[in-house]
Write a protein that binds this DNA or RNA. Sequence first.
DNA 1: AATATTTGACCGTA
DNA 2: TACGGTCAAATATT
Length: 316
Amino acid sequence: MMKSSSSSKKRSLVADQHPSSVCCDHLAALREISRGQSLVTQLRAIVLPVLQADERCGIAAQMLEDILDCSRKAMSQLQPLLLSSSDSAHDHVDDKRRVRKISSSSDDDDDHCSSKAAQDHDAKPLRQHKRRRFGDSVSLETPVPHYDGHQWRKYGQKHINNSKHPRSYYRCTYRQEEKCKATKTVQQREDLNYANNGDHPIMYTMVYYGQHTCCKSPAADDHVVVEASQNSTETHCQSPSSSSDQQPVAHAGDRSQCSNISVTCSSSAIVEDCNKLLDMLPAADELTTDVLFDLTAYAPLDLDINWEMDANALWV
DNA sequence: AATATTTGACCGTA
DNA sequence: TACGGTCAAATATT
């Protein structure tokens, strides 16, 4: 895992190199960081369920989130350099349309969504459409796209041109109550499908936009209390009573605070995915079947569904 | 009844 | 004009 200091060091080291080698260096660095993110994400899906009943669960979640945050920062420092040295950056956001100039209108303020265009075309009915902020995106690939320690609510799904699988759009569950603007997209990759290649699990490309500003994120945890249920995939985390004084306190079981994470897979595929995931991990042989069962709550989302399983997991 | 998800329509950008 | 991100009504779930 590369820290931002090392990435800046790397930047100074390559400053005098040929642009193409700089590009290759940055591209390789981005690939490695991205791989690290993916591995940490997978590790989190393994470790946190094991620690459910452990008081260190919150600490572990925070540390993992910090690691991911470090790599996000490193990537965000490298990406502009890569873009400036070459147009052939493939490991960041794959969609050119996302690398756009931030709209001159106030994209940061969803409460003032009456757009300039609407003012210019006052005859049209107002719809509060805002374009995404593109300056702060991080992509990573993972077989477990739905367990990243945050609560997400799906708000859209689109078929993407030349893609077999639709892209799902998620925003932070606490978008309204805490003005958290973090969003992400999840799309199944087409080239690493273990149906075609037994060595790989289904991989998903996740792209994160914006930073979580909600106090419910794991990084803001003081502690997390989890009630693990052996016979269901639900977990409830109780909020610390002394959390932020300006934020409403979430209560375990309060659905207004604890939204569903919809995990939808075929039942056979989900177990197979977990087995594949475990096979990928060095310490997988130490994991019990209980862990495997818990993992099913965080298994990949198959957007072509035939059954559905809900996991309530609240990070306060 | 409250909340989450689905899905077709709308709209901004390239 | 095509594409993709978002909205919001309809529908599903709890």
